[in-house]
Design a protein around this nucleic acid. Structure first.
Lengths: 335, 335
DNA sequence: TTGAAAGCGCTAACAT
DNA sequence: ATGTTAGCGCTTTCAA
């Protein structure tokens, strides 16, 4: 059996409260500090967070629900956040709901039972109904990448409107007048923002409604590939394509490859996310680059704030800018 | 405050033991079952796993330490496993050590404090020294993808030797006689197995030592790209390349793209992992395809076995076969 | 600053 | 089948 504070108390001849005080950074006489430190060393004592959690009603654990652990966007952010949080003693219970509302709901209940202190969620159910157990228990919720209007919580995302506005702008600036967007589903808030960005960029460039297209790529690889096939088949004179998330970018490349369409000679493309993938593509892809590191840092800042300061006070909405990482996948059509 | 079993006891007029028995699938009279069920419903009672954990010294939580959450291989396996485990009420505490031994060691201590029931580890420190806290506490350890000789634990991986034997065989079968492998570091057991597979495939094809090369790609994207640059610069007459993990495959493609080398006309390549990436490449990559789903299932089977049956009994080593997924990146040099 | 004691919510041994 | 009780390891009053 592992050593407990009782063992430390016996070993040092001190009371439990003193040991506990030492463990929690309280005032302990210097010579007792030393005795305790030595006893901990000797007995290889490790604090029992389960017992502490029962007493304090805190687990120092963050519950995470994301749509896909396999998305590089999620994986990168979580991996950065995990590092930062572990340094502070917080653990992450990660749950992957496979972009399924029912699973997301089940995950919320699961994490409630696991007594996590905060919920970090990249929401699938955009009504936010699944969040009610946390909201009712007044446990903090932090939304990642997607807003849900009317829910009292912090949120951190990129500026999705701007992202697609810029991406489409890359094409129009090079003289493209017949362009299409491979978009996420309209049920998704971020995807809607991105659609708006695309539309406004087209409008700003004076492209008529009949000259641009938006196809639903369902935010997935397969959906992206299908959308591209349909787009090209229906509109052979499209000259530019922009994908609105990473999976659809991969799908777009698969679709174009399988149709044998030369990039950028026949079609110019702008992708989303994942610098490594962009560099591995032939030709190298021009992409919208999301600031994952900054997103993760902001997210951790909010997480730690809620963990230490509680759920009171004004909720923050943090929106970060993207930038375009240039490649060779956009042809200049001017002149 | 959330409802406890005391509230349920008061509400139903039953004793604590009866409620506990109900909760743990024991024998309870039918009419009492109903009363309890209704009380749970009414009070919105949720079991407190922290309290239960303190009593039973089990947290129903699996500690996970992987080198990189961002590797698609890890992400895919964990996402499948998470689903299977959640259904059984087990949670995963995921930790990413960034392929760093010191972080891996720190993660072990962290997970010990978090009182996880089992450790699932894709080990970086191939001596296995970092595992000693779990081993000493007689907590089960399950190794993923990499063996550590002499450590008493279960293990599940693909047959790494066979993987590279087959991959190299794809090249030699098409008449390639000057080939190179972008390999992982020799400090890594799986990487060594893969090197052996490559060597034996060359020997079997009668390729002389002077005609093949092995370059260290450090298991990373950047390392893979650098290895390819060096290989091609030093041996311009290489005709075939095989990469020995997914990141190095991406790196290999980046390296070849940036040198502007046509595939497969000038160089044929065989990659590792990630069907989606392979399809998004131009031309479509021939790859070694790992059975992530089966790996995850086997892993979960072992995990659940240890969780329910304890750490006694014979430890299992499970090795699964890979298969080759054909693409258009290998040129036939014969005749 | 330190010690004694109560109690967090649950399980399990024992009694009924 | 059900009730009573002790106790898991810790934190936290309250006294000293």
């Amino acid at each position: 059996m592992a050593a407990t504070i009782k063992d430390i108390a016996r070993e040092t001849g001190l009371g439990l409260a003193t040991i506990s005080s030492y463990l929690n950074g309280g005032n302990v006489r210097e010579k007792n500090r030393i005795k305790i430190r030595e006893a901990i060393e000797k007995l290889d004592y490790k604090i029992n967070e389960t017992a502490r959690g029962l007493k304090t009603d805190r687990t120092n654990t963050i519950g995470v629900i994301i749509p896909e652990l396999r998305s590089t966007f999620c994986a990168k952010i979580l991996s950065i956040a995990e590092d930062l949080l572990q340094q502070r003693g917080y653990a992450m219970l990660i749950t992957d709901c496979r972009t399924d509302k029912d699973r997301e709901k089940a995950a919320v209940d699961f994490l409630m039972v696991k007594r996590v202190d905060v919920l970090l969620n990249m929401p699938v159910d955009e009504t936010g109904q699944h969040l009610s157990p946390f909201l009712e228990a007044d446990k903090p919720v932090i939304l990642l990448d997607r807003e849900i209007p009317g829910i009292s919580c912090d949120m951190v995302s990129v500026d999705n409107y701007e992202a697609l506005y810029q991406a489409a702008g890359i094409l129009t600036a090079k003289g493209h007048r017949r362009i299409a967007m491979v978009a996420g589903p309209e049920t998704n808030y971020a995807a809607r923002q991105r659609r708006r960005g695309f539309l406004d960029a087209c409008a700003a460039a004076g492209i008529a409604e009949k000259d641009f297209r938006i196809a639903d790529g369902r935010d997935t690889i397969e959906g992206g590939a299908e959308a591209v096939r349909t787009l090209i088949r229906n509109d052979p004179d499209l000259t530019g394509l922009v994908a609105a998330n990473n999976d659809m970018t991969i799908g777009m490349m698969i679709g174009l490859n399988e149709m044998g369409i030369p990039i950028p000679d026949r079609i110019s493309v702008v992708g989303f996310d994942n610098r490594h993938f962009a560099r591995a593509c032939r030709p190298r892809l021009t992409i919208v680059d999301q600031p994952e590191t900054e997103l993760a840092k902001e997210m951790v800042r909010l997480l730690v704030k809620r963990l230490t300061e509680g759920n009171d006070g004004v909720k923050e909405k943090v929106r970060l800018s993207v930038h375009i990482e240039g490649g060779d996948s956009v042809r200049d059509l001017r002149g």
